[in-house]
Amino acid sequence: MAIEQHGDAQLEGVSIRSLPKVSLHDHLDGALRPQTIIELADEAGVEVPEAAADDLADWFEDQSDSGSLVEYLKTFDLTIAVMQTREGLRRVAKEFVEDLAADGVIYGEVRWAPEQHLGGGLSLDEVVEAVQEGIEEGEDAVESGGRDIRVGQLITAMRHTDRSLEIAELAVRHRGRGAVGFDIAGPEAGFPPSNHRAAFDHLASAFFPVTVHAGEAAGLDSIRSALVDGRALRLGHGVRIAEDLDIVEQKGEEVQVRFGDLARWVRDREIPLELSPSSNLQTGAVAAWGTQLEDHPFDLLYQLGFAVTVNVDNRTMSRTSLTRELSLLADAFEYTLDDLEAFQLNAAAAAFLTIEEREELIELIGEGFSA
């Protein structure tokens, strides 16, 4: 049983699922099929709160809708518990790729923290290799079905532990063997990117791409540290950059905005924002603006020229897909196909690929939308 696909949403008479998409912010341990969790938990002797896949999907959604990132993150205890063996990691990674392809994704980056998957006796290198095997099996399965997809790994360090330099070295070691970038994740407040300066120095010296979770559970100082200390090329979420915007006057649809220095830098340098609308509501990242999708500053950032991208964050926890996120945004802000294409082009330009590969991806998106 795959993650729910939420119907075949239509926009201007076109299936959103059929459109080519790019997924940049998608956690491996947040994208398990409920049935897979049940089966792997049975093999590992892990207790699950619900015995049926649909009921377990409901449980994840209910538990995640707390308004707190800390509470939201607790749901990962279950998914990580069933991802401690080579076979478990391979299966989850393979299904991750298949589910992306079923949602129309042609390029994706999967982020996950190897240090959280050593309970079964595997080494850091072995867990990365197991996930890569699963990714390649998924890519092959998709190709045999007549479609194409490519997925790269974002090797992630947990920001509340002290292994970030070791994980950065691991990421660089697997460059060319699946790893395309580095990230830090976990509880953001109280654990700034500056704590991991040694890791970011190592990555910079190796010219290895970095994205950093920032501007989700913490504000502008976290974003500033991601850019200055982390040399981040993208911001994981980054939604709270809107705190550096001062709405001076609003007349109907006309809005005059005064930019702070940080917001202007992010906008003018076209630093991509990995926005995840449903997740941002669940974790309270946009609580300062409201509790409904229409309150999300996504549209304000888009209209002001920020490099916004659309992402799922955690498909299982938010019970979502990229098709669903795009459909929700289109309904909330009356977006057209041209807008949805712009989001995909932003994501393609932000992908941790060579410029030739990004140009090829951009061409595929253009062809898919024009068709």
Rank of each mutant, 00 (worst) to 15 (best):
V312L: 01
H237Q: 01
G152A: 05
G7W: 13
K74L: 12
R17A: 08
A332L: 05
P209H: 11
P49S: 08
S164F: 08
A287C: 14
E363W: 13
D244M: 11
D42Y: 13
I355Y: 14
E71G: 10
P297G: 02
G145D: 09
R319N: 08
L326Y: 03
E47T: 10
Q292G: 10
W112A: 02
E254I: 06
L220R: 08
I37D: 02
M317G: 03
R267G: 00
A199D: 15
A349W: 10
D42H: 13
L364I: 13
I37K: 06
S276R: 05
F333L: 04
L11A: 15
A217H: 01
P193G: 06
A41T: 00
D54A: 12
D331T: 12
R258D: 04
A157F: 06
M158T: 14
D331R: 08
L69V: 04
G176Q: 13
D338R: 12
E249L: 07
A130Y: 01
E129K: 14
E254A: 06
V308N: 00
G236S: 06
L322N: 03
V105E: 07
H174Y: 09
T316M: 08
S225L: 02
A332N: 00
E188I: 03
V131T: 06
T156S: 12
R175K: 15
E71C: 09
L304P: 02
D29K: 01
I355H: 13
D103R: 11
V131P: 05
F60P: 01
G366H: 14
I167V: 04
A198K: 15
K74F: 04
S64V: 06
A232G: 10
R258Q: 08
D295Q: 07
L262P: 00
G176I: 09
Q344F: 07
H296P: 01
E356D: 15
E39K: 03
I16W: 04
S278A: 15
S123F: 13
